[in-house]
């Protein structure tokens, strides 16, 4: 009796739900099909961004190996497209990336709100953020000189410069990672501030320098990510599926470990 009262309604709900479930499997766009048709997965990378992109043939870099695995899993040939602009400019807007150049962007893209406005991000589990390079591991007093090398990964630099001004430090712009380490090691600057990966290949340890996260309020750490064009939903799902599988079978962690990216850094202490 009770069952019969609900039957008509439940049948309707079930029919409607089934229809929607079926519909939800429709592909919302043609991006995956287009890539499969051409057989090539084009990925824009900077010339070098160690350790994500090294430029070596033997150890091509974390992101490069990752996208290679993705391309293999999807049965595609990987075509890396190194763009000089990606290495030299910190603002992704100036990289002038277009769909014609690549289906995917890798190597030094952080999963920030700003980047998410333009791309769909697929985090790789590698963290980045501002780091403090110092000899003693302490932050200096006001008036000290600080060497700064801005990041290329497209996260907010305005916050950093106002924080530096607020501290009353003299800012000295470093030209490259080596110069930054140099000036801290030579005492031209009390500390150096830069992005994690920029100095990850430098010889900080040999110079007796410590590297630690900048933990100030407003300097959140970001996941590094692969970027896909917005609206390429089907391709994103396929790539995401491969990455999920790698997470599940531990090969992603193994890859991170191989490039020394699994461990974190210590937090920088307060002065």
């Amino acid at each position: 009796m009770t069952w019969s009262r609900w039957r008509a309604g439940l049948v309707n709900i079930a029919a409607v739900s089934l229809l929607l479930v079926a519909v939800s499997f429709l592909p919302p766009d043609t991006s995956l099909r287009d890539v499969q048709r051409s057989g090539v997965l084009k990925v824009c990378v900077p010339p070098t961004f160690p350790p994500l992109v090294t430029g070596n043939a033997t150890d091509p870099g974390f992101d490069v190996e990752l996208v290679q695995h993705i391309a293999d899993s999807l049965g595609l040939r990987l075509a890396l497209n190194p763009l000089a602009a990606m290495g030299s400019d910190f603002n992704p807007r100036n990289w002038l990336l277009t769909r014609a150049q690549c289906d995917m962007i890798a190597g030094g893209l952080a999963d920030t709100l700003q980047n998410r406005g333009f791309l769909q991000m697929l985090p790789t589990g590698v963290e980045t953020g501002w780091v403090v390079v110092s000899r003693g591991g302490t932050l200096p007093a006001a008036g000290a000189t600080v060497a700064v090398l801005p990041a290329t990964s497209g996260f907010a630099r305005v916050a950093l410069s106002s924080w530096l001004r607020g501290r009353g430090w003299q800012v000295q712009r470093a030209a490259n990672p080596a110069a930054l380490l140099e000036s801290v090691a030579d005492d031209q600057a009390s500390i150096g501030i830069t992005e994690r990966f920029l100095i990850s290949t430098g010889d900080a340890a040999e110079r007796g320098l410590s590297v630690a996260w900048l933990t100030e309020e407003g300097f959140a750490r970001n996941q590094m990510a692969l970027g896909l064009w917005k609206g390429d939903q089907t391709l994103w799902r396929a790539v995401n599926g491969v990455v999920d599988a790698m997470k599940a079978d531990g090969s992603l962690e193994a890859l991170r470990h191989r490039y020394g990216l699994s461990g974190g850094l210590d937090d920088a202490p307060e002065p």
């Binding site: 992704p92 002038l96 406005g117 333009f118 064009w229 917005k230 609206g231």
Partner: peptide, 20 residues
């Protein structure tokens, strides 16, 4: 969707950190 998807980085007319 094609009107809101990215063609050139930074050239999206429709900037929210999500797809349409």
């Amino acid at each position: 969707n094609p009107y809101f998807r990215g063609e050139v980085f930074g050239e999206v007319r429709y900037v929210v950190p999500y797809t349409y």
